[in-house]
């Protein structure tokens, strides 16, 4: 199943916080709570951390396994755990209308 971003979602990466998160990641710090992008749809805002942002950016017709495979090269997480997290996150985005399956 391919995953597509809802074209009505407006979003941007926050460059300053993105750099901070990647620096922290390299040092092995917990960067989970650093928001690196903001999404806006129908008056509702969503802030994503670095993992969420990287998943979001890949929702352009990719399959879940493709996304997970790409992210495994960036994040030092067990692929099984990464897949589970990514799957849950995308399901949440779908529930909120930010992505659709094609």
């Amino acid at each position: 199943m391919k995953i597509f971003r809802n074209p009505d979602v407006m979003w941007r990466e926050e460059d300053e916080y993105k750099s901070r998160a990647y620096e922290g990641l390299e040092k092995g710090e917990d960067v989970e709570k650093i928001g690196t992008s903001v999404l806006y749809l129908n008056g509702m805002m969503l802030s994503l951390n670095i993992l969420g942002t990287e998943i979001w950016k890949r929702c352009e017709g990719s399959m879940l396994d493709e996304i997970v495979s790409e992210l495994a090269g960036i994040f030092d997480v067990e692929p099984i755990v990464l897949k589970k997290d990514a799957e849950a996150f995308i399901a949440e985005l779908k529930e909120k209308g930010y992505v659709r399956y094609g």
Binding site: E14, E16, G35, T36, V38, S47
Partner: peptide
């Protein structure tokens, strides 16, 4: 970045 304190507005 906190959703309550963005770096820039968007609206």
């Amino acid at each position: 970045m906190s959703p309550d304190n963005l770096i820039d507005p968007f609206i």
